[in-house]
Design a protein around this nucleic acid. Structure first.
Length: 685
DNA sequence: ATTAATCCAGTTTTT
DNA sequence: CTGGATTAAT
């Protein structure tokens, strides 16, 4: 059998070579799930002679799909491996949607949120406000709507509110009205968010169906109804799902364990396989994990066989009086550890723990890397760079246009909007024409709603129309005579920005690759100016004075971030693909080298020789506030299970008794109880 | 009305 | 430390 070199055990082999149909593989932590998936792909291609492009592999992160394809490359060949369609639900959807409509643009979640807010703000709740229930804030409503889209496919939002958030029934109609308008506006602007990718995918597939022989789904326990509807819509001949109920940790995103639980009843030909041999962790680590997860109701019996023969090191509990003692203590232990840095991970429930660990590691000059896009893609400089880029690619993007003017003094959102609309009028719908060949027959490009302002504006307009304020700025006549500069409230800064933008639009036309585009933008004065102003504000000390050190630091950071974006851009040949990847894959980009700092969620699917789980205090982990809303304490327990089972050889569990930074209402130092999971694990009596 | 400056609270997890 | 909200200034 050509698959012998895969080194699969009996169960893995049986799963990998299962007959075509509906297969579900229950794979507990560390049982060689990836090997099985890779084996399955090899079996399909080599034995079943399925063309690689008819295989779709859906994973939870883009990184996971890359790793699996990498492993397929090693067994078969990279030529074959790269023909397999692989990625997250979202990235696969985007790729397909692009073949249908090449003009699609994915927007940042924060931009979509602002859009939602502008729609929301038009509503007046004051006449109907009830004493018992305050209406949801725009942010909350947006998040709820997103959740609803992931868990409910048929009912209207308003009806769903009626049934699931009874206290808010009185507002259900208004909520429905808001989301209707929101969706309308979003469609008009051609904007998409993450959910839209999947929603539009389901529709697109009905018109143009990609031909997949088998769809493989990794982390099946974390799929929600919306994702499931994508799989259903694809109608593959064969389905191969791999998951583990005990690792379901995405209830907040609508993950529905019913999907995995009902697999057998949904498909008559369903076959269930089980992988029970654990290859990752030592006996005491597995015993600890099992002791805790047993407290959850069992969906099926869990039998994990230990195969590892490495020396058994008992998991160790670490207790510290204060939060930072903990971080410092752990950093010290890492410093003294013989394990190579890249095989050590510090795991936490909440991202807020990362800063402390990162800082104390840095004190000891131990390098660390953090995952998650927030670091890089949420920085102002990268946001600005990408906003400029977005606008150049899609000049109808008013939101990006407004962002570009954020750093120009005297121009806020509302004037930027007026400029945008003025240019549109002067260019008969095209900003480009508005800037380069304005229609001078347009009398007043700045139409205003309010009558008295109209009067005010036209007075200014006439007065300023004759003598431009910007004569001495060295603008060429072609720009200086543009009627847009007659806007009464364009500041000098605003005019300069507009002029630079005009230059940039010309330069951009000469670029064809994302790399040269990023380079062009980074060298334009708009970005340079933003760069300068960010450096200025970041080099201020707490007392307000300048610090040369901080300035140097700030410059270095921006330069290296811009360089990183440039580096990433080399992998893309199309503007739009690059920009979409900046949003889709934002969290996959890791920064730095060394110790791995991860949330438990982000650690899913990974393994490390030495693992530290920190901040194991009630309230923090388990996050009791969350447990009351989402998956309950069971989900927190699964989260703990996931964390523990990342460890191969060495495991430390740590907590602190106090946090001296935080004080409660009575100004008393915040004190903690150890996590209940430590009790359940038998580490505390 | 719009922008800039200042103050204040709050801080889940991911695509 | 950042975004949001409030307030002061134009």
């Amino acid at each position: 059998m050509p698959l012998s070199k895969l080194n699969l055990n009996e169960n893995q082999y049986k799963s990998a070579t299962a007959k075509v149909g509906h297969n579900l593989v229950i794979a507990s932590a560390g049982t060689g799930k990836t090997s099985t998936i890779v084996g399955r792909i090899a079996y399909l291609i080599k034995v079943q002679k399925i063309p690689p492009e008819e295989i779709l592999l859906l994973t939870f992160t883009n990184k996971a799909s890359q790793e699996m394809i990498e492993r397929v490359s090693k067994i078969l060949s990279s030529d074959i491996a790269k023909r397999i369609e692989a990625g997250t639900f979202h990235s696969v959807s985007y790729r397909h949607l692009k073949t249908v409509n090449s003009r699609l643009l994915l927007k940042r979640e924060s931009d979509i949120k602002t859009l939602f807010r502008t729609v929301y703000d038009k509503r007046d709740f004051s006449s109907m406000i009830s004493e018992s229930t305050v209406p949801y804030s725009s942010k909350h409503l947006y998040e709820l709507y997103n959740f609803y889209q992931n868990v409910e496919l048929e009912k209207y939002f308003g009806d769903w509110i009626d049934e699931n958030r009874e206290e808010h029934s009185i507002y259900a109609d208004v909520y429905q009205d808001i989301v209707d308008e929101f969706d309308e506006v979003k469609d008009e602007l051609n904007f998409m968010n993450f959910n839209d990718l999947l929603l539009k995918m389901v529709k697109a597939v009905k018109i143009k169906k990609p031909n997949f022989y088998e769809v493989l789904v990794d982390e099946y326990q974390d799929t929600n109804l919306l994702q499931d509807s994508v799989i259903t819509a694809l109608e593959p001949k064969s389905l191969f799902c791999v998951g583990d109920y005990d690792q379901s940790i995405y209830a907040f995103n609508g993950a529905n364990i019913e999907i995995i639980a009902n697999f057998q009843t949904r498909f008559q030909d369903a076959e269930i396989h089980t992988l029970t041999k654990n290859y990752r962790s030592t006996a005491p680590i597995l015993a600890l994990a099992n002791r805790v997860i047993e407290k959850n109701d069992r969906l099926y019996e869990k039998r994990l066989e230990v195969t590892k023969t490495a020396p058994n090191i008992q998991p160790k509990l670490l207790k510290y009086p204060e939060l930072f003692d903990q971080y410092r203590g752990i950093s010290k232990m890492i410093q003294n550890s013989k394990t190579p840095h890249e095989k050590i991970a510090v795991l936490f429930r909440n991202n807020s723990s990362a800063d402390g660990v990162e800082a104390t590691l840095r004190e000891l000059k131990i390098p660390s890397k953090r995952r998650g896009g927030k670091g890089l893609f949420e920085t102002k400089e990268i946001k600005a760079l990408l906003d400029i880029y977005q606008f150049l690619v899609n000049q109808k993007d008013m939101m990006a246009f407004i962002h570009i003017f954020e750093y120009s003094k005297g121009v806020g959102a509302s004037i930027a909007k007026e400029i945008f609309e003025g240019l549109k009028r002067l260019g008969k719908g095209s900003i480009y024409k508005g800037l380069f060949s304005p229609d001078r027959t347009v009398g007043n490009p700045f139409e205003h709603n309010r009558a008295n302002t109209q009067l005010l504006l036209s007075n200014y307009f006439e007065e300023l129309g004759t003598v431009s304020r910007f004569k001495d700025l060295g603008f060429p006549d072609g720009f200086l005579s543009n009627p847009i500069l007659k806007h009464p409230r364009i500041s000098e800064d605003g005019a300069k920005t507009l002029f630079e933008l005009r230059k940039l639009m010309l330069d951009f036309r000469k670029t064809s690759s994302p790399f040269s585009a990023v380079d062009t933008i980074a060298n334009n004065d708009i970005f340079r100016y933003i760069f300068k102003s960010l450096v200025k504000s970041r080099s201020k000390l707490a007392n307000g004075e300048h610090s040369k050190n901080k300035e140097k630091d700030a410059i270095e950071k921006i330069v290296s971030r811009a360089r990183l974006i440039k580096k990433i851009s080399r992998n893309y040949s199309e503007h739009r693909s690059f920009l979409n990847a900046m949003i889709l894959g934002a969290s996959d980009a890791t920064q730095g080298e060394g110790i791995n700092l991860l949330t438990v969620h982000a650690s899913k699917g990974l393994e490390f020789r030495e693992v530290y789980i920190v901040d194991l205090m009630n309230g923090r982990f388990p996050n009791t506030k969350l447990a009351s809303q989402n998956g309950g304490i069971d989900e927190e327990r699964r989260l703990f299970y996931v964390a523990v089972t990342r460890a191969e050889n060495i495991l430390y569990l740590s907590f602190a008794e106090r946090d001296e930074q935080k004080r409660d209402e009575k100004r008393k130092v915040r004190s903690f109880e150890p996590s209940q999971f430590l009790l359940e694990a038998g580490l505390i009596l």
